[in-house]
């Protein structure tokens, strides 16, 4: 089967600054992949290119064989690193908004998760705490039956218990044909649920290997290796 994501010599320049330079990589289906790198290494730039929020300066990016377009947005479920919803809306309104907007959104799945997390659907988003708002956003994103989930810092603002629940949510909703790409700094928290990791360094992949390959080869965790590779 075709890779779900393919980048070929992908380059993005901001003025004279290369955020990504000649990045070539491909992601198979059915994997959970960690996109790791220090601040400014190009993670969010890559994610925005996948979602068509930026256009490449050079090279190609293909999702399921297509350049980013409305058809790829149907199969990509994206969690941005900041709030993207209208804060005046109530949780229940956002649910029907999503149901209208996406064919593959399951209100039932979302309702179940909101219930487990004890989130009151009558509340307006502006009245939710930062962590609760993040949970609502992740619930929305994971309630779509997508081919590629792109999660930009999904666990940054939530407490450790909710973090476990979120990781469980990712594991439960994940299916064999879908790929989950997660960017994060909290490596040790998610290391066990990843198939592989991609280290980005100055807009280029410094490493692309499976978690167990890394542990076998270096005798240390991905978290420890990251600290070594990106030592300041």
């Amino acid at each position: 089967m075709e890779p779900i994501l393919e980048c070929h010599e992908l380059t993005k320049k901001y003025g004279n600054y290369f955020a990504l330079s000649n990045l070539t990589l491909s992601l198979e289906r059915g994997q959970i992949v960690g996109l790791l790198g220090p601040n400014g290494s190009g993670k969010t730039t890559l994610i925005k290119l996948i979602n068509g929020l930026l256009t490449p300066t050079g090279g190609q990016i293909m999702i399921n064989g297509l350049a980013p377009c409305p058809d790829t947005k149907k199969i990509v479920s994206y969690l941005p690193d900041r709030n993207f919803l209208n804060e005046h809306m109530r949780v229940s309104q956002i649910l029907s908004y999503y149901e209208d907007f996406y064919d593959n959104f399951s209100t039932e799945r979302a309702s179940k998760m909101l219930e487990t997390l004890e989130i009151d659907r009558r509340l307006r988003l502006q009245d939710l705490s930062k962590g609760t708002l993040e949970k609502v956003q992740l619930v929305l994103v994971m309630s779509r039956a997508a081919d590629l989930y792109v999660l930009d810092e999904p666990i940054g603002g939530v407490d450790p218990a909710a973090r476990d629940y979120i990781l469980q949510t990712i594991l439960t909703n994940y299916n064999e044909n879908a790929t989950v790409l997660i960017s994060t700094h909290l490596i040790s928290d998610i290391e066990n649920i990843l198939d592989r990791v991609i280290f980005l360094k100055n807009g280029q992949p410094a490493l692309n290997a499976s978690v167990d390959e890394i542990r076998t080869k270096y005798g240390k965790s991905v978290d420890a290796l990251f600290r070594e590779v990106f030592k300041c």
Binding site: I32, D164, L171, N192, I193, L194, V211
Partner: peptide
């Protein structure tokens, strides 16, 4: 995998 909180492929 859910019980262990690890990746299903692993």
């Amino acid at each position: 995998a859910l019980d262990a909180a690890v990746n299903p492929n692993t």
